[in-house]
Nucleic acid binder design. Structure first.
Length: 606
DNA sequence: AAAAAAT
């Protein structure tokens, strides 16, 4: 049985489904297929007279609905009975009772949002660490930030979940991104994970789905589902994590969140989809599969969010993303609302991303604890042949220091999958319980490894870059870059696995001649974040030509990126990007934003 | 050159 709220509201629009592209080929409906054109969300659900032509559907499935949701009184009449569900957003206080018992409580508490669970410590965020974060916004008519959740009308159910999550007040990225998103604007946001970024794009989407009336469902029996929001991420584990968070936020809102990713049996995911989906969280490959099977249609997408957007648009992913966003049945920019989030945003990628955006706002949020350096970064010169024994020394020292194994996890990044396996084996042989996560392992093994690491069962995780981005693993006290990445942005993401949510952390890197191309960027980054830069590293940095190449900091300064529309070298002859009304605002205690790549400015990361 | 992402 379908159980997304949308299904409960209306079961209609057979003619649209029948007319809709490939998705419904062969799916028989009893109504005459009436070709209708796409109706943008802002034009839907007006008064009956403003609606598109009269509903044509008179099939056997229901007593009839209207296309695009129809007027509210109509929803109240037909929708509730067909779904057997109560409530709508206009009668929310009395509504949504059905399904409450059946929805698994993702908080694991007794359903009382007000109850304080003292056992469940630190699920929240250290908000004190966010006080003086610099924030920069640019674009036309930027909506002002909010200071409290109360200022925004997200709805009772969502507010209750916010309390359950112990979010007391919005983080900087939430303060700025939520009003922008609620205003319906497209957004390119440079913000650290672990500071409530997922919530920043989930809250407005959930709230919008709850309040919106853009409802569209295929006729009963059609196996195609029509999510209203799509969230894409570059790794399966990250998609899982976003799904888990989104489920908390949407608990008892009636908004249904489903995740789809590869490496896992597709049938269970298909079953979940058939039960109804409003928000689909997915990795690109599996989504393409679902689209080609016509099990998912993007026709009704109103919100598109790309997490780790710079990764999603880099060489490896770009074709797939273009296919999903531009070559299937997704509404174009300006019709859908698009939000791109990442901790780093190279300018080349920003330019690429404009293909997906419409009159967007750029938002940059400085690093967590920019004034207090929550992550201590160390670089040590270690020859390849000495790396293992050097790592062993670090681990022994850690153990000797009485760092509780269960309390402090160590994440070791290596360059290759083979290298990960062999290092894990060697560690294990030497008495350090370790596991590994990389793309050559089965999905089951990957998820098992992550669970085992998180639980402290194997407090050392050897990982490739599959674990570099977005994963929120509490208690990672130490990130070791056993092999340094070639790109400074990857380094930034990797060390961001520690020092999460305002907590402190340590990052150690093993550097040798093989990494000389990274020297300059690494030295700059460390200096910008007030780290001690070894003299030998500075010498390497001075020797290496800057070249303006890949390792140049994408944003410089305190942010993970700056709005490339302000960079003349990217705008020569393109006055569009200068189109007036560029408003810019700077919040924070660190003084005016200097711009450029000058030294001495605190760096942004993650 | 490596990593990730569908079967």
């Amino acid at each position: 049985m379908r159980s997304s709220w949308a299904d409960s509201v209306v079961n209609s629009a057979a003619e649209n489904a029948a007319a809709g592209s490939l998705a419904n080929a062969g799916v028989g409906t009893t109504s005459a297929p009436t070709r209708t054109s796409y109706v943008p969300p802002h034009l839907r659900n007006r008064t009956p007279s403003a609606d598109p032509p009269a509903p044509a559907y008179s099939g056997p499935a229901s007593g009839g609905g209207t296309r695009w949701g129809g007027p509210r009184n109509d929803l109240n009449r037909s929708g509730f009975s067909t779904g057997g569900r109560g409530g709508g957003w206009n009668s929310r206080s009395g509504g949504w009772d059905r399904g409450k018992e059946r929805e698994v409580n993702p908080f694991g508490d007794d359903d009382n949002a007000e109850q304080v669970d003292s056992e469940q410590e630190n699920t929240g965020i250290n908000f004190d660490a966010y006080e003086d974060i610099p924030v920069e916004t640019s674009g036309d008519n930027v909506p002002p930030p909010v200071n409290t959740f109360a200022e925004i009308d997200l709805g009772d159910a969502l507010n209750q979940n916010i309390r359950r999550c112990k979010y007391v007040k919005p983080t900087p990225v939430q303060r700025h991104a939520i009003p922008i998103s609620l205003a319906g604007r497209d957004l390119m946001a440079c913000a650290q994970t672990g500071s409530g970024k997922t919530a920043a794009f989930c809250f407005p989407v959930i709230s919008g789905i709850m309040k919106g009336q853009f409802v569209q469902r295929p006729p009963r029996g059609a196996r195609t589902v029509y999510p209203i929001a799509l969230i894409l991420s570059p790794t399966r584990e990250l998609s899982c994590q976003i799904h888990e968070e989104a489920r908390k936020f949407s608990y008892q809102t009636g908004v249904k969140v489903v995740v789809a990713y590869g490496g896992a049996p597709i049938h269970q995911q298909l079953r979940e989809l058939e039960r109804g989906v409003d928000i689909l969280v997915a990795t690109p490959g599996r989504l393409v599969d679902l689209l080609e099977r016509a099990r998912v249609s993007l026709q009704m997408i109103r919100y598109l969010a790309l997490d780790e957007a710079d990764r999603m648009l880099d060489m490896g992913f770009e074709p797939q993303i273009r296919k999903i966003v531009q070559q299937m049945d997704m509404p174009p920019p300006g019709v859908r609302q698009t939000m791109l989030f990442s901790a780093t945003f190279p300018k080349e990628i920003q330019r690429l991303a404009t293909d997906f955006l419409s009159n967007y706002i750029f938002l940059a949020v400085g690093r967590v604890g920019s004034s207090t350096d929550l992550i201590v970064q160390r670089v040590e010169f270690v020859q390849e042949s000495d790396k293992r024994s050097h790592l062993m020394d670090l681990l022994h020292a850690q153990r000797a220091n009485g760092v509780q194994v269960k309390q402090s996890l160590t994440l070791v990044f290596v360059e290759t999958k083979k290298g990960a396996d062999s290092l894990e084996h060697w560690l294990y042989m030497n008495g350090f319980p370790a596991t590994t996560i990389h793309g050559d392992r089965t999905q089951q093994e990957r998820e098992q490894a992550l669970r085992s690491f998180k639980s402290g069962n194997t407090p050392i995780l050897v990982a490739t870059d599959v674990a570099a981005r977005g994963l929120d693993i509490p208690h990672v006290g130490h990130v070791v870059n056993f092999d340094l990445p070639n790109d400074i942005d990857d380094y930034v993401h990797r060390i961001g696995r520690t020092g999460r949510a305002g907590k402190s952390g340590l990052a150690t890197a093993f550097f040798n001649e093989n990494n000389s191309s990274l020297a300059r960027a690494l030295a700059d980054l460390m200096q910008e974040s007030n780290q001690e830069v070894p003299a030998w590293l500075s010498r390497y940095a001075a020797r290496s030509s800057y070249g303006g190449g890949k390792n140049r900091r994408s944003g410089g300064g305190r942010f993970g990126g700056r709005d490339f529309r302000k960079d003349t070298s990217f705008n020569r002859g393109n006055t569009d990007y200068y189109s007036g009304g560029n408003s810019s605002s700077l919040y924070g205690a660190s003084g005016g934003y200097g711009g450029g790549y000058g030294p001495g400015v605190t760096s942004a990361w993650d």
